[in-house]
Design a protein around this nucleic acid. Structure first.
Lengths: 121, 121
DNA sequence: CTGCAACCTGGAGCGCGCTCCAGGTCAAGC
DNA sequence: GCTTGACCTGGAGCGCGCTCCAGGTTGCAG
């Protein structure tokens, strides 16, 4: 009689753009969940799970590795150690800013070549 | 009587920050060279080689893949096809800008978490 | 009750970008 | 000439981040 609650794996895959395999992989690696299960043992994701997967995906897309994201997940779960937590977050932030700088440098290189070939065919 | 000209592999490794193995790997993959050889078959890099390796390294650091860089190298060598060339360069440029956007989004996520934990320990 | 799609697990496989190794050659100083 | 260190080649190995597969279970629709 209880309404079936949460999202089935296929639904989550569709909403997040991840594959079922990746969703399971992230869970194994501790980036997500543990996700709730139905009586029969099938996964049911709740709103929080889906929102968290969105955050993880965003950080993955920016280039953070699985190990970083595991640590991120663990730190945000832990009660204590807010200092560690903030220090970790700031370090990642700095790394991302550095990466933006590297990309800017590369764009400058490309612009140089584009200018060269666009004006002198 | 001819002075020994160019740079030995070890020297180039030091100047570029790449390993000897990576230098050879890039050459095999067509990202660099072919590099000149001494009478005895050992590599001698000239200024242009070193400069080009710098460009390749810059683009690698920004996240371009080996296949992209091979294509980049081939296109800049080819005489014809300036249109292809510029189109290719612009495409990579756009991809890099997209990546900057993804990183910005990730930084926003981190900032949100930092703000949260910095104010509420 | 049956059928079928969606799901489960454990484990193998893959593409990328190096990195390491064995077994040899080259080159410069003594 | 000999030693020593830098270099050569071909090929195997590795860490990462998935992706695929076999063989089986679940669960909804008709």
């Amino acid at each position: 009689m209880t309404a079936v609650t949460g999202y089935a794996p296929g639904e989550v895959a569709q909403r997040t753009g991840l594959s079922l395999d990746t969703l399971r992989y992230y869970e194994r690696e501790g980036l997500v969940g543990p996700v709730g299960r139905s009586a029969g043992g099938q996964r049911r994701y709740d709103e929080d799970d889906v929102a968290w997967i969105g955050i993880v995906t965003c950080l993955r897309d920016a280039g953070l590795g699985i190990a970083d994201l595991r640590r991120f997940t663990e730190l945000l779960r832990a009660e204590a150690g807010a200092d560690d937590r903030v220090a970790f977050l700031r370090r990642r932030r700095t790394e991302l800013l550095d990466q933006v700088e590297r990309i800017r440098a590369a764009i400058d290189v490309l612009d140089g070549k584009i200018a060269h070939y666009a004006t002198e065919p």
